[in-house]
Design a binder for these strands. Structure first.
Lengths: 197, 197
DNA sequence: CCTACCGATCGGTAGG
DNA sequence: CCTACCGATCGGTAGG
């Protein structure tokens, strides 16, 4: 009564906010416990919903995982392209990419790291979509690495970027912030390992 | 009647064979589908048992995973120590270790690779046991790497072995036998990447 | 987004 | 190692 029916026609930001909240929370739980071990009920409870409600925003649990991954890759790609656009020598570019990548996968506020280990949980179609996004991300790296491989600063030839990804992505397995090394310090050590003098 | 009661007192090899068969089959399925996505029924069916029977050999699904991992690490450790005992220069030893490690994690007949990605599925106690076995394995590597790091043939200082493991273990993510490279060829490329001239 | 619920599946067990 | 079964849980849905 007090409020006239001037309420917005299309549900505004709020709807997107809840969706974004689900993605963020699901990402965190998937990372902490794994996709299979995380239930829709866990996710719903963590955002203050009832168990059936996430399905109002996502048609399946799979779909939620796909959204988490693509969201993560989009954020990553934007960041990487910004770095790549800064210019500088191949070595400087490489250093910057390593630092940016590690901040991305090691930051606990980020859920990028589930991209590394939950491929198997995606359906065939979702996987194709996510792989396409991943390929765009890797392309930035391949281009950046090429001159360094050619100069002999990085070994491994055509496989160099795969070995580089391995050395970097594996860090999520052993890095702990309390260990005394900052992310940037680890990045420095990684560059020292990867790049020949 | 025809056969006198000279049947063996303790159930012989057969019992161990069934157990070993369960470990081998469970390992393959865990690797293919992941621990959570593999059911006891899958495993039982694959070895020709009924769904309840694996629990005659293992008291829980967890226990079966632990057995798969420890079995895998034991096999690996024996192989690695044999390599380490062969002697030779630090560089030769390193090459040999890389080849042996990759044969271990890339051979589809082996289930060593699930060690890399199913830590989360272990209970606290099982994990401690498996980590102890893993530490023994890594020790071989740390010793072998030390002189090379000191000579500047490998970068990364104290973290060198972690970066090396990363570059090597990541290979399971992208290697396909049909890709035209043999395991030993990939190993050669890996050494080229890791070891400075 | 909630209520109320389903169908299916799953790890595990008793009792032989 | 099988038969027969349980208790719990889970993804998902109808209907509002």
């Amino acid at each position: 009564m007090a409020r006239p029916s001037r309420a917005p026609v299309a549900p505004p930001a709020e709807e997107g906010n809840r969706r974004a909240e689900l993605i963020r929370t699901a990402g965190r739980l998937f990372r902490e416990k794994g996709f299979d071990a995380t239930t829709i009920r866990d996710i719903a409870a963590a955002v203050g919903m009832r168990s059936g409600s996430p399905f109002y925003h996502f048609k399946s649990k799979q779909d939620l995982l796909k959204a988490v991954m693509i969201e993560g890759l989009d954020v990553a790609l934007v960041g990487m392209r910004a770095v790549a656009g800064r210019g500088g020598s191949p070595e400087e570019l490489f250093r910057d990419l390593v630092h940016a990548h590690l901040r991305l996968i090691l930051d606990p506020a980020n859920d990028f790291s589930i991209l590394l280990y939950e491929w198997r949980s995606l359906t065939e179609e979702s996987r194709a979509e996510v792989i396409a996004a991943k390929d765009r991300y890797e392309e930035v790296w391949r281009v950046a690495l090429e001159p360094l491989v050619e100069q002999g600063r990085i070994g491994g030839g055509r496989l160099a970027h795969l070995f580089v990804f391995g050395a970097l992505n594996w860090i999520v397995q052993w890095y702990h912030p309390e260990g005394g090394l900052s992310i940037d310090q680890v990045a420095g050590k990684a560059v020292d390992f990867l790049l020949r003098p």
